[in-house]
Write a protein that binds this DNA or RNA. Sequence first.
RNA 1: CGGCCGUUAGCUCAGCUGGUAGAGCAGUUGGCUUUUAACCAAUUUGUCGAAGGUUCAAAUCCUUCACGGCCGACCA
Length: 524
Amino acid sequence: MTDKANNTPVAQDENKLIAERRVKLEKIRSNCSANGFPNDFNREHLAADIQAEHGEKTKEELEELQVTYAIAGRVMAKRGPFLVIQDSSGRIQGYAEKTVQKEIRAKWGSLDIGDIIGIKGILHKSGKGDLYVNMDEYSLLTKSLRPLPEKFHGLSDQETKYRQRYVDLIINEETRNTFKMRSKIVAGIRNFLTQRDFMEVETPMLQIIPGGATAKPFMTHHNTFDLDMYLRIAPELNLKRLVVGGFDRVFEINRSFRNEGISTRHNPEFTMIEFYQAYADFNDMMNLTEEMLRTIAQDVLGTTTIRNTVKNADGEVVEEKFYDLGKPFVRLSMVDAILQYGKEHRAAAHLDEAVLRDPENNFDAIKAMAKAVGVKESSASKVWGPGKYICEIFEEVAEHLLDQPTFITEYPWEVSPLARRNDENSFITDRFEFFVGGRELANGFSELNDAEDQAERFQKQVAEKDAGDDEAMHYDADYITALEYGLPPTAGEGIGIDRLVMLFTDSPTIKDVILFPHMRPEAE
RNA sequence: CGGCCGUUAGCUCAGCUGGUAGAGCAGUUGGCUUUUAACCAAUUUGUCGAAGGUUCAAAUCCUUCACGGCCGACCA
């Protein structure tokens, strides 16, 4: 099948400014080598390195040195004879004396903001104290045909920032920093785990049975097998198959896909790390999480205290929050969280501790309580048991209030189809979720390695699917087979990388930490 | 999927209770030539998101649609 709509070239949004630059490009093509696009300039130095090495020197000291530098980058501003050049490391000025300016005008028409040039010459310091490279040699490397956003206000239109991230990256240093930080965070996680003998693996994203989470999958089709397939919603089951195989400590950092709503916290494809450790339990995972986040914060931010802000429409900071990852994180059971945070809720009077602590024998009461606090029921709620109601009440009255780093434990087995039951209380599992700033960042548990129990849980999920819950899990017979070979006692965890980066970079929406977030196509 | 808000020049934005489109930046031309949002003078730029409607007259009022933002819903 060919999709002509996506392959038809559409008329570019030409305007006068672009036309003027095309005229200049014609001139450059005829006056310069390589038809105007040379690739023989040898860039030898970065702006930031030069600034670091010579920024503190006096004008006179520099004149004595007479050092030559070869820089290249994008022209970001013109100030008389000075050109502000931006490269991947930072900015430094170039200086065009009058004869050079005349020469440029004759050969290139004129230099535009956005053009990419190479400059080689002696480094000086200006009267106002800024370093500049004299344009002893220079070459126009790439003519920019499109005008950049205005130099002072920059690019603030969010739609353009997301649709044309390349423009956002040219213009906004905060955007560049966010994605540099993201790279460092991922590298930090990788280091942390590999130092602890975890092995990085890659498992299929195309799956026949999407498993490992309750979510709606994307569907696709494999032509050769003539087989419907799904994009994975989680790597979980394959990673545990690897633990069965004897890889005791594995992790995978990559995308999962869920065919659900888009919001400030949700993108249809998102990056998770999942890691599994044999002969460990969920308490070990919580300890590991604390240590990992602490280490990464220290390595990436240079501090364990993270500052997040709330801004108003004008971009002014109206609220500041600090999260100290250096302190032990709060650990609270789900029911305790309901009782503690529910005090502020408008329906607080309905939160009866005796009922919450024994929901199985108070099913009607827990249902009434859920209704009182505002839990909305749907057609799928026919199959809800007491555990699901507890979880719904928690989400309604407590979850969004979990600001400081908090582990919530004691998730009911009913909402945890892959987690191990607690030994003392079979109503709950050895599971936790981790929250910061009202956002869920991680989910971990001691793994259910009892094949027969797992088979029963899958059957219950299938019943829920048949009852109309299209997010319920499929029965994965091969996974049961794998468990029958024997999964050692194991604990595992998934951390949402995008949300973690949001926390570390003080980003209010997930689109700010994803280079190319999904948007509806623009109308033609 | 629902509520509210937005969409005007390449960018950032004005444009009032309807009277026929503006500023700064950048662009063009010239000047200046160690500037820092460089400066000085002159000057160009528009399908006012799209389509209907009301009106003598619509960027402005009404309707529908598109896209975006925020908040809900779903979820991670």
